[in-house]
Structure formats: C-alpha cells, structure tokens
Computed example of a mutant assay.
Amino acid sequence: MSPRRSNPQTGPVLVDIAARLLADEGPQALSARRIATEAGSSTMAVYTNFGGMSGLVREMVYEGFARLQSYFSHVAQTTDPVADIALFGRAYRHNALTNPHLYAVMFGGASLAGFSLTAEDRQYGRYTLSTVVECATRCITAGRFRTGDAELVAHQLWTAIHGLVTLELGDYLIAPCDADRVFEAQLTGLMVGAGDALEAATRSVKSSQGRLEKVVEEVRPVPQDDEPAAGRGRPPRRGAPAR
C-alpha cells in the first residue's frame, strides 16, 4: 500500500506532468527532480504521494484507465443497445484524444522508463471493458447482434477503435480519409460485422453521435477536495470485487 498523500491536489498534477514528459521526451526525462520542478513542488512529493518513481509510473497507468472508466460510467443505458455500444466507442476515442499523454503510457506507446506492467496492472485495465461486454450482451439479446460470445465482440470493438485512435494520434489519418470520416464509417461497419442490419446500424450510430456531448459534460474534472482523482471511478485491482 502506498503512503498516505499529504497533499491530494499534488498527486494528480504529478501524474499529468510525468505522463506528458514521458510521452514528449522519453524515459530520460523522468526524474523526481524534473517532475517536482515542473510541478513547483519538492522531490519529496513524489515519494510522499507514490512511494517512489515506480509507484508514480504505475499510477499513470491506473489514472489513465480511471479517466476512461469515468467516461464509460456516464454512458446511459437506453432501449437502443447498439447506439449505446457505439457511444462507448465515441467515449473511448474522446478520452484518448483528451488525454493523449496518459493514453500512450496505458498501452505501452511510451517506454515506461524501465518499469514493466504486471499481469495485475493489465487486468486492471481490462476491467474497464466489462461494461462494454454487458452492452454487447444486450445487443445479442435484443437480436441486433448475432448470437455469439459477447466478450469476443467487445474485444473486437476495442482492438478496432484502439487501432484507429493510435493512427489518429500519430497524424496518419488525413483528408480525404480523415479521422472523423473513417471513425463514423468504422462504427457502422463494426455494428454490421457483429450482425446488425446496415440500415438499423446506420440509424443507431447516428443517434449516438449527439449523446457524446452529454457524457463529456457529466464527467467530473480532476477533483480539488481531499480525494485523489485516481480514486474516483477507478476499476478495482485484480482480486477486488467489482461493484
């Protein structure tokens, strides 16, 4: 267990700064002194908040998934499960584009400065997919997706959208196949590939578009009270019960 944080406002700031340095300058930029200087605090803050650099790197990964989970938790369940699952895709992309520095760390796009993720760390990340699996199950039950493995469907959606987002963050998607155009076509194609009819999928994907703004508005910003940001909406560690 990491030490109790003396200043809850400092932890999230250090996480953001460290992730940005790692993504922009590489692992050589990660040092307690450099991070503290950027944050306007002392090096002791790194050890007080995270127990050391390895704890800070792990916290970057956890914080990235906590922010993703926060968006997912605000995707309301409606009578159109295909629109709901398309909205999960939109929320995933929005989170990546909003937190590109953390996104790179979450999936190994940035070197972790000699720190390796454990199986527990990765399981922690996989937990965020559980709500998408539940939604895929609803799509199957409603007869919109063909009968099959809902978990596999969720993983197919995840890998496809992750690939697009990675290309988008790398500025590979430009006109005439810009990211927005490809993403909209991809969402519809994924729904049809899972078994939905083209007309119904097109209608549901379009309806999900207008719902993203509400999700974004409902996601709370980094807290300024006595609870660390990563603690809110965070998926349970492996072995902890899902609530």
Rank of each mutant, 00 (worst) to 15 (best):
G51N: 05
A110H: 15
V75M: 04
F88E: 07
G109C: 12
V82F: 06
G51P: 02
E59F: 00
D84N: 14
V61K: 04
M53D: 06
D84I: 13
Y71L: 00
G109E: 12
A66M: 03
G114K: 08
H94M: 00
S73L: 03
T98W: 00
T78V: 14
A96I: 08
V105E: 03
M60I: 00
F72Y: 15
G64C: 05
Y62V: 15
G109R: 13
R58M: 09
T79I: 07
T98H: 02
P100Y: 06
A96E: 08
Q69N: 15
M53Y: 07
R90F: 08
M106T: 10
N95C: 14
Y92H: 13
H101V: 06
M106G: 08
P100F: 03
Q69A: 15
T78D: 13
Y71M: 00
Y92C: 04
A76R: 15
G114S: 09
G109Y: 11
V75D: 05
L112A: 10
V105F: 03
A91L: 04
E59Q: 10
T78P: 14
G109K: 10
M106W: 05
A96F: 09
V57H: 01
Q77F: 11
V61P: 03
A91V: 01
T98K: 02
M53L: 15
F88S: 04
A66K: 00
A83D: 12
T98G: 02
N99G: 05
Y71E: 01
R90H: 12
L102H: 02
I85A: 05
A83I: 09
A96V: 13
Y103Q: 11
N95T: 11
G114N: 09
Y71Q: 00
V82K: 06
L102P: 01
N95Q: 14
G108I: 14
Y47M: 07
H94C: 01
N49M: 03
V75T: 05
A76P: 11
M106C: 15
V57M: 01
G108C: 14
P81F: 04
L68S: 08
T98D: 02
D84H: 11
M53N: 10
V105N: 04
M60A: 00
D80V: 09
R67G: 04
H94T: 00
I85N: 07
Q69L: 04
A86Y: 10
V82Q: 08
A86G: 11
T78Q: 13
L68Q: 12
A83N: 09
E59H: 01
Y103E: 13
R58C: 06
Y92M: 12
A91G: 04
H94W: 02
N49F: 02
F107T: 09
V82N: 03
Y71F: 06
S111Y: 12
R58Y: 08
S73G: 06
F65R: 00
G51E: 03
S73P: 02
Y92G: 05
T48D: 15
V75L: 04
G52D: 09
